[in-house]
């Protein structure tokens, strides 16, 4: 159960994050040597936007401590499910280049299914595998796109050829 107080904390984090982002943009723009002699250089809009970010961040901070926040009465969140979905996506992009599209996407499918309460792991893996294999074939051979088959597979197949 996420309480109203943690919703306020969340809004404060958002406000603080925007201020930090504004500061980052301003510093990075200051450090970049300007090129060109246009009337308005490439630095003006970054400064304007970083100023806007800081102002909005401050007003969110004020709202977080004194004003109306969303779901002030609290909101129930199943953070375990969120973590599982996020982990599934992270595993996919970490393993995509080595294991390839089919295995990494199968893992993603199973992780998300579990997060949504699907308990039959084998069935979920099978459906994920079928979907991953189908998209791999359809997109690589049908539409001419390049989903990775994975460096491990490539090494194995090239070893076979020798």
């Amino acid at each position: 159960m996420t309480t109203g107080r943690s919703m306020r904390a969340g809004e404060a984090v958002l406000g603080g994050g925007l201020i930090a982002l504004g500061g980052l943009i301003a510093v990075e723009t200051m450090l970049t040597p300007s090129v060109g002699r246009a009337v308005v250089g490439p630095a003006l809009f970054p400064y304007l936007i970083s100023g806007g970010l800081v102002l909005v961040g401050l007003s969110l901070l004020r709202e977080a401590f004194a004003g109306a926040v969303a779901h002030a009465e609290g909101l129930e969140l199943d953070l375990w499910a969120v973590a599982l979905v996020a982990a599934g996506l992270a595993v996919q992009f970490l393993l995509l280049d080595t294991l390839g599209w089919i295995p990494s996407t199968t893992i993603l499918f199973a992780a998300v299914s579990r997060a949504f309460g699907g308990r039959r792991l084998v069935v979920n893996l099978a459906i994920g595998l079928a979907l991953a294999a189908f998209t791999f074939v359809a997109f690589n051979y049908g539409l001419g796109l390049n989903l990775p088959e994975g460096s491990i597979v490539e090494r194995l197949t090239s070893a076979d050829a020798e």
């Binding site: 993603l108 499918f109 992780a111 949504f116 699907g118 994920g128 989903l147």
Partner: peptide
């Protein structure tokens, strides 16, 4: 079933984002 629907949505989301620039 919702588990398969949302898992499928994320499969296609990663597919679409990856194939933009490989």
């Amino acid at each position: 079933p919702r588990p398969w629907l949302y898992a499928g949505i994320l499969v296609f989301s990663s597919l679409g984002s990856y194939t933009l620039n490989n």
